[in-house]
């Protein structure tokens, strides 16, 4: 469905009406073709936990899960995200309980200014979904697209290790993670 809107000196531009599935809920949004998922999440749907650090795909602060895979939402168009499961940092806590990764980041001191934190946690989440018991090198590799100037990454890596260890102990963790994956299965090329 298309809507027209008056825009600056470009006269009328077309708005697409799309449905986005964010954190298990469907949202209707009107977007222009070139609008990024990040801008629509932040400006239209109010998911400001996704941060805009660079808008160029080089800092990872905007990372969200798209069908369980970590993507930089400043590089994904909103219109491409229809019909896929989007998880932002706001969707990670369940029933008022933080995800083990969120708790681990808090407890070991992996958070300082916190601006990189949502993206960092979601990149780590995607890693643990595909590899529940990662090595230190695999953790570093998975987080290498997320910049942090405050922590020097030492405690971030430690937090991911701790969450992985906890997760392998807690049998109850599995169902929640399954919910993060959507049908259909992740497509090749959709991740970063």
């Amino acid at each position: 469905m298309h809507h027209a809107r008056r825009r600056g000196n470009r006269g009328h531009v077309t708005l697409n009406e799309i449905i986005l599935h964010v954190n298990g809920r469907a949202y209707a949004a009107r977007v222009e073709d070139h609008w990024t998922l990040l801008d629509v999440l932040r400006n239209q749907l109010g998911f400001t936990g996704a941060k805009k650090g660079c808008d160029q795909g080089s800092c990872g602060a905007c990372t969200v899960l798209l069908d369980g895979i970590a993507v930089q939402s400043c590089l994904v168009l909103a219109v491409q995200s229809q019909g896929r499961s989007i998880v932002t940092i706001e969707g990670l806590a369940r029933d008022g309980r933080l995800d083990p990764l969120q708790s681990a980041f808090h407890e070991v001191g992996a958070i300082q200014c916190g601006f990189c934190t949502p993206g960092m946690i979601l990149s780590a989440k995607a890693l643990l979904l595909r590899n529940p018991d990662p090595s230190e090198d695999q953790i570093k590799e998975a987080l290498s697209g997320n910049l942090c100037r405050c922590t020097g990454y030492v405690k971030i890596v430690q937090a991911v290790k701790m969450a992985a260890a906890e997760r392998s102990q807690a049998a109850g963790a599995a169902p929640q993670d399954v919910a993060l994956r959507a049908d259909p299965a992740p497509q090749a090329g959709s991740g970063t």
Binding site: A50, I89, L92, L98, Q102, H106, G109, I111, G114, T117
Partner: peptide, 21 residues
């Protein structure tokens, strides 16, 4: 001691508001 920061949970939860938010 080793105490987690007072603003750690709002930041981990994505609820902390920065100026651009």
């Amino acid at each position: 001691g080793r105490m987690p920061r007072v603003d750690g949970i709002v930041k981990a939860a994505g609820e902390a508001m920065y100026a651009a938010d």
